[in-house]
Amino acid sequence: MYRFLLTPRWLGILALTLVAAVAMVLLGNWQLDRYHGRTEINERIDAGQRMDPVPLRDALAAPAGGPGTLGPAPTEEKTWTKVSATGRYDATNVVLVRSRSVEQRVGFEVLTPLVLADGTAVLVNQGWIPPVPGAAATAQPTVPPVPAGEVTVAGRVRTGEPGKGAVTRRDGRLETRRIDLPRLARELPYPVHGGYLLLDEQSPAADPTFVAVPVGHANNWQNLGYVVQWWIFAVMALLGYGWVARREAHRRAGLLNERSAAPVDRAAEPVQPISP
């Protein structure tokens, strides 16, 4: 009853079904890899919030070049590690990162170089500040002054943002849209570490005007949902092929039964074979 499945037409349908099912399984596996990757990021974020700070050098290698050069980027395992560093803020090279949103308000994130005892610097994201009330979105805000003298900070290591962000200097401050560390380093008069710090604590305390930049977790559950979706589609494709084949087999069996039950009329035309 199922010999028709060996015809070229049905073999072609089977091949297309298998190719589609394999493709869907592979797409599910890809989403599963993304789920594991995002889960690891979320675990590092949570671990960084809970851990005690370690020395900066435990997570970020010192830059080896001269002024304006960038050091090695932190490894994936060291990203989000909470570190501590002591130095002096360079208030003459504050970086304003515009068009940053906190609680649905658009303002600026403020990065200030912390110059260490060895002459290198690490950029510290001190937090978010609102724009000037009633002014244009591009108007420079009033940035609270940094503490004078030696400062000790604790913050989590972040990598720079992908993409190229133009850097301009206006009224003694650098402005950019993205935290593009290589470009920012070229504007600074010292070697710069290859990652920046998202400030958690500071001594002396930071100005209360700064709002802590919220850290969002990666939506790994969405990827897990896609895994289940693609794998269900693969099973449905195979079940659909089986259902269509079974229906065709029953149709052919019904036609054969009707013809075998009909009286033989020798004057009638020859019975046409069932098309594959």
Rank of each mutant, 00 (worst) to 15 (best):
E161D: 08
P130D: 15
M24K: 00
R100D: 09
M24E: 05
W30S: 10
R100V: 04
Q104E: 13
E43V: 04
A121S: 14
V83Q: 06
P144E: 10
L238E: 06
R169G: 04
V211N: 00
P204S: 04
T112I: 12
R38D: 06
L26C: 05
D207N: 14
Y35C: 02
I41Y: 04
L256W: 00
G165V: 05
T138K: 13
A218S: 10
Y226E: 09
G28H: 04
G127L: 07
Q140T: 12
T152W: 10
I179R: 11
L56H: 05
V54I: 14
P72I: 10
E40L: 10
G216W: 00
L16K: 02
A237S: 09
S99R: 08
M1N: 08
I129H: 06
Y89R: 10
F4Q: 01
E258I: 00
G28Y: 11
R9H: 11
V157I: 13
N42D: 09
R169F: 07
V19D: 03
G119N: 12
Q140W: 02
I274H: 02
W243Q: 10
R38Q: 15
D90Y: 06
P189K: 09
G240E: 04
V213T: 15
T168H: 01
R38A: 03
A117I: 10
P53H: 12
A21V: 07
S99I: 02
G254R: 11
A148Q: 14
G216C: 00
S101M: 07
H250A: 11
E258M: 03
A148R: 12
G240F: 03
S203F: 05
H193V: 02
V157A: 07
G254N: 06
A185Q: 12
I45C: 03
N220F: 03
G149S: 08
D46L: 12
P141F: 14
G37Q: 14
G107K: 07
Y89L: 13
R247P: 00
E40V: 10
L198E: 06
P204M: 03
P67I: 00
V228H: 02
V192S: 08
E269K: 13
T138H: 08
Q126S: 09
T142R: 14
W10G: 04
P273D: 08
P145N: 08
P130W: 07
R9D: 02
A20C: 12
R88A: 15
A166E: 13
D180M: 11
L111I: 02
E76P: 02
D90W: 04
A154M: 12
D265H: 07
V244L: 15
G195D: 08
P131S: 04
P204I: 01
W221C: 00
G165W: 05
V54P: 02
E248K: 13
S260L: 14
N220I: 00
H250L: 09
L18T: 05
L96S: 07
S275L: 11
V167M: 05
T69S: 15
V167E: 06
P67K: 00
S84L: 06
W230N: 05
L224S: 06
V106G: 01
V124N: 13
G160C: 11
L199Y: 03
P53E: 04
V146P: 00
T17Y: 02
V244N: 03
A267Q: 06
R170K: 10
Q229N: 08
T168P: 02
Q140L: 15
G163L: 03
V124C: 12
A23K: 01
